[in-house]
Structure formats: C-alpha cells, structure tokens
Design a protein around this nucleic acid. Structure first.
Lengths: 235, 235
DNA sequence: TTCGATTTTTTGTCTATACATTAAATTTGA
DNA sequence: TCAAATTTAATGTATAGACAAAAAATCGAA
C-alpha cells in the first residue's frame, strides 16, 4: 500500500470510528511529515483525498479539521432488475406492451426531452417466472439516441439497451409510493390501489436529455437498498 | 482557477458531453504536459481526480481511457426531514408518541442492537403544518449512545439528534412500498392500506450498532431523490 | 510456430523546493 | 479602546527530477 494511501486510510479509520470527532483538529502537515517520515507532498496528497471525500475541511492558516456531516448522502444500489432476478435463480423476461414513435405532447417534460425531434414511447412489463414484477412507461429522445428507433427491444429491456448504447449519463431518480391506477393494476394483475414503489428517472448526457422513465413495482416484491459508509464515496 | 483544475474540468466536459466516448483513449501525460505547458505532476493530479471520480481508467503502459459508466450506483441524499420541510417554507414538528427504555426482545435484530445493554424505544410522528407526514418506529442502543437516555427529544426529532451527536456512521437503508397497517393508519389519519413509502435503516459506528428505524411516509406527500453523475461523488 | 525472456512505454509514487494565498494573530495608530 | 495595517502560520499550487511497477510489444530459441 502506497504511503499516501496509508495516511489517508489511517485518518479515515479514526474519523469513521469516532476517535476523531467533527470539529477536531488534525496535526499540521509538518507534524505529519515527521510522524510518517515523508515529504510534504505525500501528506498533502493524502489529506487532499480526504477533502475530496468530504471527511475533512482545511483552512489556510487555521489548519485541518474533521468535517461535520452535511448532507447525509448514501449510495443507492440501483439493481439491474434482470440480473437481480436471475441471481435468485428465477427467470426474468421483459414483455413489450406498446411502442411508437410520436411527436412531443403538451407536457413540458416531453417538449424538453424531444428537443425539437420525436419521441420513442415504449411501455412494457417486467416479468419474474412469468408473473408481473412491475410496469414501465418510457420516453426516449430520438434526436439524442438515433439508434433507438431501429433497435430490437424484444430481447433486451430498453433500460439495459440504453445503458449499453448511450455512453455517459447523468441521472436523477425520484422514489415514492403510490397506489396502482386502473390500467397499471390490470397489467400487474392486482387490485386498484395496491401499494407500489414508483421509480421515476430522468437521464441526461451533458445538457441533452436522453430518457424519462416511470416504473411501478409491486411493493411486496421489490425493494431498494442503499449504503452509507467508507465504501460509499469510492467506486 | 488552478491549472490542474482546468485540465480536469476540460476532460470532464468532453467526457460528459459525449465528445469522448467510453473506451476512447486520452493523450499520454507527456502530450498533455506540452499541450498545457506544465509539469507532469500537474497533469497527473488532474487525471488522478478523474480516476477518483470514476470518469477514466488508467493502465500502466496501456494509457488512459474513458471509463464505462457504472450504472448500478447512485447517490441518495437522505434528507434531514425537518430541514427539507422548512426549506419549502412549511412548518415541521416531531410529535413523540411513546418512549421507553427496555431490554431487547426475542428478535435477533434487537439483541444485536442492544449488545448486552438496554434499548431506547421511541415512536413518533412527523408533522408538516400540523398534518402527519409519516410515523417512525426507532430503537437506539443505550450502550452505544448513552446520551440518548437523558436527551430532550420533544424539540428535536431523534434522527436529527442522532446525526448531531453520533456523527459519522455507516448505514444501510431499505426502501419499499407498503400499505398502512391499522395502528399506523390511525396515527397518519388515513385509511388502512393507503400506499406508504417504507424506509428501514440500520446504522453502525465502526462495528457497533447504533440504531434501527422504520419510517412510514405518506406516499403522495414524500419522495426521495437520488442522483447519478458528475456531482454524485462530491458532497 | 509458439512459448518465454527481454525491452520499452506509460503510469504510480515520492522527494525537495519554491512561491502564492488566505486568514488568524499581532501590532500600530488615531 | 478600537479599527486598520502588518506579520505570520498554515494550506494551495506548481516544478523538475528520480525510481518503481506493470503490461504491451518485441525478440529469441526450442
């Protein structure tokens, strides 16, 4: 393990373990140079990494301090549904319901997404061992993702297809609980009003909108897990 | 803007904008030194930051490449409910329902949490402008958080109190959708079976368990937001 | 040809030093 | 006394150079 990495993880451990509390002061770089018998650049590299991770704050002339936790952020594992289901030894399938290419409607969301072009509108069903797990309503910008128009989405669910074909994305996910509406309930094969986990996601590449998706999962069959901790900031 | 920062944001922009696609090769450090007229350490610092952000991969002898997006993880901002509500200009209050100090029950979760000591059991209601937003059922280890026994939790919700007093924690959150049960529905003032967002969280400091909480939020009044992208790794 | 050893290229780490920047601490001046 | 100017202690940025480590590329021999 490189020295700068050792210094970093030393202090990471002390902070996460509670030995160093928020507001506590860390030794100055000169002292750490002596303690670890290394140059200032090495110490600085270690501390810079801790700054990037949000664990410490540094102020010129004042020193280095354990940061107070600001936003309590966690890493949310967004499961690849197909992989997750298959991991449990069950069978996954995506069943397309509808698919058309159309112009954007009145909705501002649709107008922004289309960006002057057309929208590919895809509805489908996630199936586990033949039983519905969730329904999905998706819009994709034909301008931003030209390949989507001719793509074969019967084999691959559109989410997976997009992940493989759209290079780098920024996304925002909104999670809430709703009761299934009439049409949704019918597809899912449950009573109207059955609690479902609603996942809405908007995706960008740079400033260009790629897709909007709204997924409705049966509440008792699906849940999401998030972690917060030392492994959270790293990838 | 420092030079290393400029180099970093240059490439960040090109990658996020799609100009550089996953798998594309970046110039070697020597070329970047010439291009930016700086030393190798400066180039290296910029590229190291991009590695930390997960935007690029580097291999010795092979070079530097745009990374393929890892879609499985997003950053979930676990909101301090009180702060979030007040930000919207509404009034937040926490109404304690029950509070007692007791021994752990049969449940393995409770035994592990107590760790040989007692448990502080707190039930309460989150109120927005006087109306229920969610109910909360919480267990705190009295051994791990001695201060909790005498804490005044009428003014401050226990979640906020813990955040302020047990700073750096590791946590696991499970999110699902459920229908409100009889007692819960009564406290929330809704019909039994109303869809609710269920948030379960276990929290550690190091290997010591701190708290377990199960929150039930009205589905139409509360949602969670997660982000994936360049801003995700920062805090 | 094909496997194994050697070379070469590129990144990874570290040093020692220099000067810039910021803000706390101190001194100065009215 | 209090506020403005100065000093100073700490971090921030950058340089040039050295050697290490890994893996792709090349070469050599069975």
């Amino acid at each position: 393990m490189p020295l700068h990495e050792r210094i970093r993880s030393d202090f990471e451990g002390r902070i996460l373990g509670g030995e160093l509390a928020p507001g506590d002061r860390l030794p100055i770089e000169q002292e750490l140079m002596q303690e670890y018998g290394c140059s200032r650049m090495t110490v600085n590299k270690a501390l810079s990494a801790l700054v990037a991770a949000g664990l410490i704050d540094r102020r010129k002339r004042a020193g280095t301090f354990v940061a107070r936790p600001k936003v309590h952020s966690m890493v949310l594992d967004v499961p690849d549904i197909a992989a997750q289901v298959r991991e449990r030894g069950q069978d996954y399938a995506f069943q397309p319901i509808r698919r058309r290419v159309r112009a954007a409607g009145e909705d501002e969301e649709e107008v922004l997404l289309a960006g002057g072009g057309e929208l590919v509108h895809i509805d489908g069903l996630h199936l586990v061992d033949g039983a519905p797990l969730g329904v999905e309503f998706r819009l994709v910008s034909a301008l931003a993702v030209p390949g989507i128009v001719g793509a074969d989405l019967d084999a691959v669910p559109p989410g997976t297809w997009l992940l493989q074909h759209v290079p780098w994305t920024e996304a925002e996910t909104r999670i809430s609980a709703v009761g299934a509406q009439a049409e949704e309930a019918e597809w899912l094969g449950v009573a109207v009003g059955t609690p479902c986990l609603c996942v809405e996601r908007r995706t960008w590449r740079g400033s260009e909108r790629i897709t909007y998706v709204r997924q409705l999962f049966l509440g008792d069959a699906y849940d999401m897990v998030a972690r917060f901790g030392p492994g959270a900031s790293g990838r």
